[in-house]
């Protein structure tokens, strides 16, 4: 019965999204609210992400023109990097995206000083790798990576340093004993915050779970990341309580089992709605 209900709900949600997508121009605010409340049906996900990130304009008459511009820009940048010998046939695709992003951000090193990607690039590469799994078309993929990363940094850059504190707060509400244990053994400060809050769980969750988290991030919430982290900790409470070495805890959390990440995300979204409320904009 539970699945029936979920399935039914899914159909209703899909219908109401289809109605929203017929609007011309698209109501971006309503699409945001929809994505905050419901998971996006996978067949519409890339399209909605592109609209939310401003890659596609809301007016349907403009979309083909703008899509053409996006493709041209992609080709121009890619081609220049090839001529400059920054890219070769063997260059991994995610590194191609990195160099393109660096060129557009005026952060491309000189060719003579070029080194393999460094640690500071790892967050970008992890996000790119995950996006590559979700999005087939390389032009869409590059634009989504670029706009996701830029929007995330612009919008949430100031909030990110506060997320560990927020995690501690909500964990204390949900499970004081677990929090006390993590504090006592010195693991709390060493949790994989960067993996969770800078990479938005890229490389940590399989894409099927990850994209449901990114629906929320792209539509405007970075707080969801805190609740996902809380649920990760709660889900593995028994194991974590049995570990006393912070290294072991960090190690375990950095390469988590991949089995029940879907359940973790579902619970995290519920928890997030519980604390932060469900966006009520009618859709």
């Amino acid at each position: 019965a539970y699945y029936e209900k979920v399935g039914f709900r899914g159909v209703e949600e899909k219908k109401s999204l289809e109605i929203l997508l017929k609007d011309n121009p698209l109501d971006v605010e309503k699409l945001c609210t929809f994505s905050q409340r419901f998971p996006l049906p996978s067949m519409y996900r890339v399209h909605v992400w592109k609209v939310l990130l401003g890659i596609l304009p809301p007016h349907s008459e403009s979309q083909a023109l703008v899509a053409g511009y996006r493709r041209e820009q992609y080709t121009d940048v890619l081609q220049a990097l090839q001529v400059m010998r920054f890219l070769h046939a063997a260059t991994p695709q995610v590194e191609v995206y990195l160099r393109m992003f660096q060129l557009e951000g005026q952060e491309l090193p000189r060719l003579s000083e070029l080194t393999p990607p460094e640690e500071e690039d790892e967050d970008f590469l992890a996000i790119a790798k995950a996006m590559e799994e979700i999005v087939e078309d390389p032009v869409d993929c590059y634009w989504l990576i670029k706009c996701f990363v830029n929007q995330f940094n612009n919008k949430f850059g100031d909030s990110i340093p506060h997320l560990p504190k927020s995690l501690e707060h909500y964990l204390s509400q949900e499970d004081g004993r677990l929090l006390a244990h993590l504090k006592a053994c010195g693991a709390l400060r060493r949790l994989p915050h960067s993996l969770w809050f800078r990479r938005c769980f890229a490389g940590c969750f399989p894409e099927s779970s990850l994209q449901r988290v990114w629906d929320k991030v792209i539509s405007g919430s970075c707080k969801i990341l805190v609740f996902v982290a809380v649920e990760v900790l709660l889900s593995y409470k028994i194991m974590l309580m049995a570990m006393n070495k912070p290294e072991a805890i960090v190690q375990f959390l950095s390469s988590m089992p991949q089995e029940n990440t879907d359940a973790i995300v579902t619970k995290a979204i519920d928890l997030w709605h519980k604390y932060c409320g469900t966006p009520m904009h009618s859709v």
Partner: peptide, 23 residues
């Protein structure tokens, strides 16, 4: 609004071309 969105997307190409020129 529609015109503005189109113009911005077009200008984004100009900006990218400028970065390419610099590189």
């Amino acid at each position: 609004g529609q015109a503005k969105a189109e113009l911005q997307a077009s200008e984004s190409r100009v900006q990218a071309q400028r970065k390419v020129t610099q590189a």
